[in-house]
Every structure is written in structure tokens, then in C-alpha cells.
Write a protein that binds this DNA or RNA. Sequence first.
DNA 1: AAGATGCAGGGAAGCGCTTACCAGAGGGCG
DNA 2: CGCCCTCTGGTAAGCGCTTCCCTGCATCTT
Lengths: 346, 346
Amino acid sequence: MAREDTRRPPATLHDVAREAGVSLATASRTLNGSTRKVNDEYRARVLTAAEALGYVPNLQAQAVARGRTTTVGIIVADITDPYFSQIAGGIITATDAEGLVATIGVSGRDPEREVRLVSALRAQRPSGIVLVGSRVADAELTSRLTSQLRDFEAEGGHVVLVSQAGLPFDTIAFDNIEGAGALARRLADAGYRRAVVLAGPEELLTSRERTQGFIEGYAAAGHPSPSLEAVHSAFTRDGGYEAMGRLLDQDGERPDLVFAVNDVMAVGAMARLRDAGLEPGRDVAVAGFDDIETLRDVSPGLTTVRLPLEQGGTTAVELLVRRAAAPSLVRLPAEVVVRASTPALR
Amino acid sequence: MAREDTRRPPATLHDVAREAGVSLATASRTLNGSTRKVNDEYRARVLTAAEALGYVPNLQAQAVARGRTTTVGIIVADITDPYFSQIAGGIITATDAEGLVATIGVSGRDPEREVRLVSALRAQRPSGIVLVGSRVADAELTSRLTSQLRDFEAEGGHVVLVSQAGLPFDTIAFDNIEGAGALARRLADAGYRRAVVLAGPEELLTSRERTQGFIEGYAAAGHPSPSLEAVHSAFTRDGGYEAMGRLLDQDGERPDLVFAVNDVMAVGAMARLRDAGLEPGRDVAVAGFDDIETLRDVSPGLTTVRLPLEQGGTTAVELLVRRAAAPSLVRLPAEVVVRASTPALR
DNA sequence: AAGATGCAGGGAAGCGCTTACCAGAGGGCG
DNA sequence: CGCCCTCTGGTAAGCGCTTCCCTGCATCTT
């Protein structure tokens, strides 16, 4: 069957108006919301015509005519990563509850690409951009990103950052430091003394905050762990696996606790432990961060810090819609979740 | 700091042309790709002006003027589910490699909502729609969906379905039946005799195919399992957990193998087994489907069927771009992955 | 009863862009 | 040297829609 047989361009408002025997203005007013009232009979005729022609308004044209869009641009580092997909889920749900269109770009954890994506997104003249960051401590990149975002705001757009505070835009920040700190205090109190942090990439801010929070927490508990060190690696499962391997290859006493800065890395670390014939939890306690849904049933259950990821997404959209006068910062609390991977805590 | 201080609308092509002292047409031709050649000096002036003004073309306006967009609409059931997020990842990567804009909608596994999303998407006049389905065996819904999609194609759009064959559109189908069949044959040969299928929702086509493939595979192995039954439940972790519970509550001999129609359900089932004091793998073998990345390190390792999910996404975009004359069907192969959760297989 | 007021429809301008078409310049050719 | 072709810049007509503004009519006011 040839597919182009019945090709026929979509009905326009003009078509509807003609069909209904009214003016373009009237058709527009009845179909696409206006403060103006239109006569019930006309209204009915327009509605019927629209239905008959299968009219669907052309959003692009509306955007051009109105001078604003209902689009929200989302940028995430990696949609495949449950951390991002949960936040993105929240954003998408919230956007289409607000009748907004969500456009998505994936930076692949490449800050350069992130900057380019912002610029590409701006071409769509979205009403807002939500950047779910893997922000990085690099002054030059940060300044390029900031300047792109500033330009966008100067044009009337609205930027919301999810994840990292410190930039002059509306921000949803998760309590990384506090969460990691609380976890550390409890672990320290429970008696773990040779803790190691699987810290992710050195320049990644999320990693840094969690590492820092954890170390400070240990100190605050009055049990500064002299051997407390941070091993850097990729922010992924493989990163966790590989870093754990390096740790095991080292001489000296084996750690009694490994804190990975995210759950995915923790799972990688657990796999590496098993490959070395060690039982995670029993031989080496493991803790993670994020409380990723998909990972809640790993065995032994992973002690972690829960973040309201989805809520972060929805809150971001709220901020976008209710556009405050000055940049605001919403902090979302973290909560320690104790499971079997840190037996001393039970 | 008030944010609106320096508010200034984005530069238009008109601004650029004026700044460069050339006509609109020339500016358009140099900036936004055209077959027409423009004088090097003019070109340079336009480029400089554009740079100076921070000009970013207005995609909406281009779309209106050109009568076509570079947008691709994506509809998935649940971006939080790793199955969908991996496919979506493939789609997004491929779209922006092609310079297309990806717009995303989430149906929440509600077929009604899916139909509405298609209709909403059409308002954006995307060049294509990729529907990553949880298609369902309901004639009325299917026909409404089909008719929406048909209308869209009649308008010159292009539809690609990922997941379920059988509708008159380009389709990427995973080898559910063959994959489940191959898995079943191996398990049957390995000696499992009291197999049960955790089958997901009765009306979900993916569930059906996998269940059917598995049962047929068992029969084909010459070991028709008389007790082989299918227990229905939600397609989620909780569905797996709950169905496993029902199974355990039943009288009679305990199954020696549970095949869940996806990994997430399998993990739920494993959790339920543990809660009942049973050790997955040892006491009851477990197998899943999808080989979700995040779940590759669960313990015991989950025997499953690997699907090239990301590739499915990229292939979908390829189909979209190279728009064939007649609907084509691309089948993507499944591959059995044996791990520790089915010890008899090792 | 006559002007004032309110109300809803329609005409048309305009959003930012593309592109068909026109016009002028330059070059090649017989 | 005139003709025609080619080449490139500009003009202006749209694309599908919104919305300002005008108009005619019904209603109100005194």
C-alpha cells in the first residue's frame, strides 16, 4: 500500500472558519481560548466544523503569533541513569499537567555538550529551561553556561537548575551534604572505623558535596576516621566496580565500610566485592546514595540516602510557572534509609 | 536583584539584517542554509552581526514559514522504567545526531492517555512520532489510536512504533516470542519441571508474547510442563512481588522455576521469595526478560533475555528519517543471558 | 426619543521567517 | 557590439495564527 495516497495537509483555522461560515477571528476565539465571548450559535458551528475537519491547532504558528511558546526544555545528563530518569519523570508529569510541551536533550555528561544544548534549545524559544545538572567545578565552562542561561533569561525565558546551588538562577537543591553527613554520623556511631569513600569524578559537584558531607559527618561524630580517604572514579556502575577493585588491590587493612556517592556505583562496588570472594555487608559494609527505585531490592538491601527525585522535578516546573522576582533556592531534604548492607546499623 | 532589569527580546533576523546592512533574504540565506550562494563579504558581515547580537534563529517561525518542523515526538509509557528509558535514550541520542528536536510525553501506561498524547503531539506538527508502546489487546482503543496515527500520516507525518508489530506503521519489534522460547527450551532441557509464568497484565501484548513464547518453548522442548500456568499481575516490581506472594500462598507443590515477563517483576518476585525465607536461585530458580542494565548486578545474577533496547530507539529514528514507501518491520533479536538465578543452567 | 454605552463579528496587521520572483550586473558568444 | 545567460541581492508574498481596532447593532439612560 502506498502511503502517500491520501496525503492532504492538516486543516487550518482558515478551513474551519470557511466551513463554519465565520471569520478567522471568531474561529480563533472559540477554539483557542480568548477573553472575548462568542455567540453560542457561532461557537457551535465552529466546534462542529473543527470536529468534522479534524482540526488540530498549529502550536508553532500560535507561538509565532503570540510571541511565546508553551514549551519547556529539559536537559539531563543521561536519561538512562535512574537518577535522571526519575527527575525527568517528575518534570514531564508536571509539565503536561500544566499543558506545557516538554522537549528533551541529553548531554551525555559532557559539559561542553550541555552548553551547546542550551543554545540549541533557545532556538525553540521555550518559556523555560530546566537543567538537571551534572555541574562541574570548572570556572570557564561554568561561565559559558551561565552566560548562555543569562542571555536566555534576558530574553524573558526562565531557568531552573535542579541539583546544584550556587548559580544565580532558581534552583532545586538536594541536601547532599546534610544527607551524607547524617549517614556518616550513624555509621560512625555504629562502629565502622575504616571507612572509604568511592567518590566519583573529582570535578563533579554532586560527588564533592556527598564526599565532603560524609567526611564531615564522620568527624562530627567524634570519630574522625584517620584512614578515611576518597577514591575517585566514574559516576557509574563501572566506576564503582573499578574503584572498588583498586581499593582491594591496595595493601594494608581492608576497609570495613565503603560509601559510594551513588547507588549505581555502590552496586558496582558490591559486584566487585563478590568477584573477589567477599560478601557485601558481611565482609565489607556498603552504603550508597539516592535510593534508586529499581535498586531497592538488591541483596543485601542497600543502605542509602533517599532523595525526593521525582518531587524535585515537579517542584522545578512549579518554580518555572510561578516565576518569582528574585532567584529562589528550594532545598529538598534527604533521608537516611537503613538496610542490610550495613549490618551494624540494624 | 530584580531579574527583569535588562529584559530585551531576542534578536530577530531582521535585526541582524539591519545591523549588517543587507536584506532579510540575504541574512536568511547566509544563516539558515540555502542553495543560493551569497557574496563572501556580505556573508561575513551577516555572520559578524549575528554573533554580535547573539542571534538564535526562531525555530517556530522557521517551521511556520517552511511548512515543516524538525521535531520528533516521543511517547513512552513510563520514563522511570529502565526499559523505556533505555529506548528513549536511543531515540534522543539519534534525534539530536540528526539535528532533530525531541519532544516527549509520558502516558503512564494508560492507553486512553496515550491516544490523547498523540493528538496533543500532532499540534506540534512534528515530522514524526515514535510511539514506544505498551500496546494492549483492546480493539476499540487500538482503532482510536490507529485512526489518530493514520490521520497524522495522511498529513505527511511519519509514525514509528517500537515494540508491537501488527499495526500498519513502521515498526521496530523485539523478538519476544523467540527470546522467551529460547529461554524456555534451555530451562526445560536443564530439568526444570514445575515452571510458572509471572505474566503481567492479561491485555498487555508484550506480556502475552513473552508468556506465549515461553509456554511454546517449553512444549517444543518435548517437556510440556503440565503445571505450567500463568499468573497475572501488574507489569511492575510490585506486580511481581504480589504475584509471587499469591503463588506461595497456593497449596500444592512449590514451583521450581519462576519466569517473570520482565526483569523488574523478577526482582519483585525475588524480594517476595526472600521475605518468605526462600533463597532465589537455590530454592526457586528465577528468570526475567529485558536484561535491564541497572539490574545486571543483582544477586544472584538474574538469568534473562537481552533486548537491544537502545538500538531499538536509534533504529526507530533511522526509519523515521529514511521514510520508506511502505510500512516496514524491523525485528531485533533477543539473546538469552544465563546467570546464577537458574543454577541448573550453568 | 435620542444619544450613550456595551457587545460581539470581522478586517487586517503583524509575529519571525522562507522563498518565488524580479531586477540589475557581469560575462560569454557570434 | 548586442544578445542572452548566469549570478546574486532585494522585494514582497506568504506560512497559520492572534489580536487590535473598527463597525453595526442592541440595550440603556434620562
